[in-house]
Design a protein around this nucleic acid. Structure first.
Lengths: 342, 342
DNA sequence: TCGGCCCTTCGAAGCGCTTCGACGTCCGGG
DNA sequence: CCCGGACGTCGAAGCGCTTCGAAGGGCCGA
């Protein structure tokens, strides 16, 4: 009876063993490489495996080995922020994880703490990568109590005892000012994230601003930092006010992916030519910078690299290795058409 | 010895059974509801479950029940297209899947056919949702041969025997023309996807164009459809040429999320006021339309709804139910500030 | 020639769960 | 008063895999 109920298409390790004329455990060892197997046997087993189209049953493997070979990728609750960058993180994490023979489970944070506990306790995943972590992120305290290792992309207020990785936004802010100052600009402004983002104490927004202001002070450049909405109307108003208040302004740093296009449009509308009248540096993905007109000098958020390294760190933790608590990637500024000497 | 090696934090169903003073199988039945359990026993078992913080082991469950309670979400190989919409699909799929007690495994198509075969054969997932399917999508033939059910978001050239769902782009194209014609416009143009997208035979681009042209013919409106790049420079050129060739043009349909902003900027630069001189309808997510200046009349891609229904269809297939081969969601046009009577 | 060792392979015992058949118990109808 | 059925619960047999201890065979040195 049992035979009839079986899915006929499920090839098990036992089938492979029979086909190859070896013991079931031998097949397992060929697959895992945990014991020496003679070259001849290995060859026979491998031949049988692909003759039969065998794929190990993930559940059975997880049960027996106590390793699911899956990691979780946790999106922030409030998506919609940095969407394209998030997507880059995600694909980069997936690709990197596959390199380590792991798959990726996608979670949104809207299940709350219990969601994280569930996947951790159910052994669905071996470890967790949390994306777009904020200063006082609700996920952080939960992650701390979990027995499973985790890596955060972004820095919470208290990163102690965690493993965090991100672009060094502080240096990114500096880099923009240094570039502008190097071109002779003495009066610059930062258009940052929307106000709510600062109020939420989002780490990268604050750190960029600090780096920006600090560098300006060091280099004796006049500087202001303004929050910046993402809607065309608000941006127009902000920019108009800014230019009215500081007619000397010749350098602009935009740290707001969604606003970049509108800022350029607004400048055009206000009769400011880029880069002749005003130089613009953006902190955004390369595609956005390249697609703009004129192409923008920019510091890119190296999402691929961040994702790759996040997985790397997690794998090392899974192997019981000690890893640095914080990893900051140096910013890299690409000069394009939107900046020129003052 | 075995006792020492055990992870001390793994609570099993046996622990729960002991704690509640019932048989292991009784706990299982309480959890699954597959057999009647007295109210009293059920209460005791549930109490023990959360006293101990029990979570069923996903692997064990998958092994015994032959159901992983996980579905795969497969991104197209070439991401970066419709990024924000993709993200909406993804979060919507995750949320909906959780409603059915399922988790979501994120795959990119760059592992190729063998990747799909692997997750299917390894019983890692019960079913598959493929996002952003194109006319001649490499994933489609593979999905056809898999024993696991799948649902496609988007339509391949031959959808026979598959389950597909998408916005009805044909009707969307029509709706835009009908709206403009209703306002008295007699000369309209469609700015569509980049040329390469048409060459790749991407379904939605073609279908939108067909619907657009067909409706124009029905309504006796002059119409042209042009592919459209995503870079500011190209868009400027395209638009300039278009306006030069057709000075009568008063209606524009933009089906290209990335280009929307540039189109508006270009119109401004060319001295065309929206909507006074020219009316603009976009096919894009609401946020993009709302964030533009002026806010755009648009047909939205109902990503949430598509994701939700895709999961729904998949769940029904998993339950052995028959489902329609194709589901087309009616477009919905929202009037905002960018269209006015001719 | 023989014991001992290494190299390779085997068998069996779980991993934690679902599910099937069986076993009381308690009820109502004949 | 007894029998047939529900109803509620239990025990045991796997699901497909990993892993541990041990067995078999060839080779070496004594």
């Amino acid at each position: 009876m049992t035979l009839e109920r079986k899915r006929p298409d499920m090839v098990t390790i036992a089938d492979v063993a029979t086909h190859a004329g070896v013991a079931l455990s031998t097949v397992s060892y060929v697959l895992s490489g945990k014991r020496a197997i003679s070259a001849d046997t290995r060859r026979r087993v491998l031949a049988s495996i692909d003759a039969l189209g065998y794929h190990p049953h993930a559940g059975a493997r997880a049960l027996a080995s106590r390793r699911a070979n899956v990691i979780a990728l946790v999106l922030p609750l409030r998506a919609g922020m940095h969407v394209p960058v998030l997507m880059q993180f995600a694909t980069s994490v997936v690709t990197s994880a596959r390199q380590f023979e792991h798959d990726v489970l996608l979670m949104t944070a809207d299940e709350g703490p219990s969601g994280l506990r569930r996947i951790a306790a159910s052994a669905l995943v071996d470890g967790i990568v949390a994306m777009d972590v904020e200063m006082r992120d609700a996920r952080v305290p939960v992650l701390r109590t979990l027995e499973r290792p985790s890596v955060l992309i972004g820095f919470p207020a208290d990163a102690h005892g965690l493993t965090c990785i991100d672009l060094d936004f502080h240096l990114a802010g500096r880099a923009c000012v240094e570039h502008l100052a190097g071109l002779g600009h003495r009066d610059v402004a930062l258009l940052g994230a929307p106000e709510v983002v600062y109020l939420r104490d989002t780490g990268y927004a604050h750190r960029t601003r600090e780096g920006f202001l600090e560098a300006a002070e060091d280099l004796k450049v006049n500087a202001v930092a303004e929050p910046c909405g993402e809607h065309a109307a608000g941006i127009n108003a902000t920019l108009e006010a800014l230019l009215a208040a500081r007619p000397e302004l010749t350098g602009l740093v935009v740290h707001n992916e969604a606003a970049v296009g509108h800022v350029l449009a607004a400048l055009a509308r206000l009769g400011k030519r880029v880069p002749e009248d005003i130089s613009v540096v953006a902190i955004c993905p390369d595609e956005v910078a390249e697609r703009s007109h004129p192409a923008l000098t920019s510091v890119l958020v190296p999402a691929d690299e961040v994702g790759r390294q996040a997985v790397d760190l997690l794998m090392r933790k899974l192997d019981g290795e000690a890893v640095p608590e914080s990893t900051l990637l140096p910013p890299q500024l690409t000069v394009r058409e939107s900046t020129a000497a003052a």
